[in-house]
Amino acid sequence: MQLELANITIDYGPRRVLAGASLTLRAGQVLVVAGANGSGKSSLLRVLAGLQRPSAGTATYELGGARYQPEDAGWLLGWVAPDLQLYRELTAVENLRFFADVRGLRKTRAELATLLEEVGLAGRGDDALATFSSGMAYRLKYAYALLHDPPVLLLDEPTVTLDERGAALVERVVARQRTRGLAVIATNDSRELRYGDYVLRLG
């Protein structure tokens, strides 16, 4: 299990935000990408999630001898980011059940309740997402990302809008991810640098 970046370059129009990033990340490792606003942290994470094509270079996941491009690796990725949104009209459980269904997972109600409890939303499963505070909505994003026990976790601004207990949740999630695979975290919060085995500074 590993993630390989080879000469990743990202352009926005005439502006080059990332020039030729290369590295290898193995299972059990966490990479923290740090840098000021606009330094290309989120873009790099979007490239790793297959949500954006790099202007040059490649990102490849290797798992069990097979290689996957980010575009075809949705099933091994968990992604949390400020620009990730779930369905406001649906309840928390309905959201999770929908994403489990399209991923082909059979989740019982009890399993979903456990997951919600894990992210600190116990008892709120049947409330519509529209009634959630922004911190609660952010917690639900963690439930969405962890739903399928992904070997790769991509966290963009992991604690934004979260309270202290939310920060503890992130700490737990990252610690557990070390035993399951790898994680890449983009942040500009200096306290979060400690999560990383490597720190990649951009900008």
Binding site: G64, R103, G104, L105, P151, G196, L202
Partner: peptide, 29 residues
């Protein structure tokens, strides 16, 4: 533009953690 702050060797990192990654692609829905 890019610098690695920590230069811990990869082997020690792997030894530190007992990682078990399920390498099977789950059945597509």
């Amino acid at each position: 533009m890019i610098d690695s702050d920590q230069t811990t060797s990869e082997s020690t990192l792997i030894a530190k953690n007992n990682v078990q990654v399920s390498s099977l692609k789950p059945q597509a829905p």
